[in-house]
Simulated scan of single mutants.
Amino acid sequence: MAKLAFLGLGVMGFPMAAHLKAAGHDVTVYNRSPEKAEAWVAANGGQSAPTPREAAAGADFVLSCVGNDDDLRSVCLGEDGAFSGMERGAIFVDHTTVSAAVTRELAAAATEMGLGYVDAPISGGQAGAENGQLSVMCGGAEEDYAKAAPVVAAYAKICRRLGEVGAGQMTKMCNQIAIAGLVQGLSESLAFARKAGLDIESVVEVISQGAAGSWQMENRHKTMAAGEFEHGFAVNWMRKDLAICLAAADEVGVSLPVTALVDQFYKDVQAMGGGRWDTSSLIARLTD
């Protein structure tokens, strides 16, 4: 078992850190609002620290799941950042969805300090985190990944190395691109079924068994039909991710017309007051 630090106890990080503790690791947590860290310790044991640096002191692995590029920089760099507290040979594993650019920037800084760095964004939503069934897509040196993978296994359904640093983030962009068009298609399908006077449950029962079936259809069609969006991955975060996708597309020279269009549809949802709604709320644009 390893000595670990976990930085960021949001809807994903809180249960992920709990799985690490349940697996027998010695876990110290840090959260920007200390109340969450105190609640985690009360629920799971372990200990909390007031800064990333103090949480990371003596840790074999430091894992993070924060909000965006700036949040990740803030927990990594500076006098109170995790890198300052880590010992040479320790490995930083980042589960945040961020740009490949900031990933490479921080990986370079880690390398200069004798630290390993694995970018390991996740997919599977809050339910996946709570059930330990996340998909983890990784980039980094083979030896760093090989050391980190058994730790990440505590909450992973699948964990794979896709290449060097940054490959994990680029793979997560593939994930978000695929989801964007899929959720819009499902939204249009359900809205069409309703307007056509069809029973949505019966429609889904049939079409889900064929080529139209998907995780989104199985897990979200009931709440979408009911107009219930208070769960899962928020629209605000999806727009953050899609902005990264579109910027990366420009960088590699590929056109993403559907992704760009769905991003604007999510902007409409934000204008409706749905910034914190689940991403399945795209259907709200199509209902009276």
Rank of each mutant, 00 (worst) to 15 (best):
M1T: 15
L4P: 02
M12I: 11
G13R: 03
F14K: 06
F14C: 04
F14W: 08
F14N: 06
P15Q: 05
A18T: 13
H25A: 04
D26I: 04
V29L: 04
Y30P: 04
N31D: 12
R32G: 09
P34M: 11
P34Y: 07
A37V: 10
E38Q: 14
Q47K: 14
R53S: 10
A59L: 01
A59P: 01
V62T: 13
S64L: 08
N68K: 13
D69V: 11
D71M: 05
D71Q: 05
L72S: 04
V75M: 02
G78M: 07
G78P: 06
G81M: 03
G89K: 05
I91S: 00
F92D: 02
T96F: 01
A107E: 02
A107N: 03
T111N: 11
T111A: 15
E112C: 08
G116N: 07
Y117E: 01
Y117W: 15
V118G: 02
D119K: 09
P121F: 02
I122P: 00
S123I: 10
G132H: 05
Q133T: 15
G139K: 00
A141Q: 14
Y145A: 07
Y145C: 06
Y155A: 11
R161A: 02
L162R: 01
K172C: 09
A180M: 04
G185W: 02
A196Q: 14
D199E: 15
I200P: 06
V203R: 06
V204S: 08
I207T: 10
Q209P: 00
A225E: 14
E230N: 15
H231S: 11
G232F: 06
G232W: 06
F233A: 09
A234T: 09
W237L: 15
K240P: 08
L242V: 12
A249W: 13
V254P: 10
A260I: 12
D268A: 14
Q270P: 00
M272H: 09
I283M: 00
D288L: 04
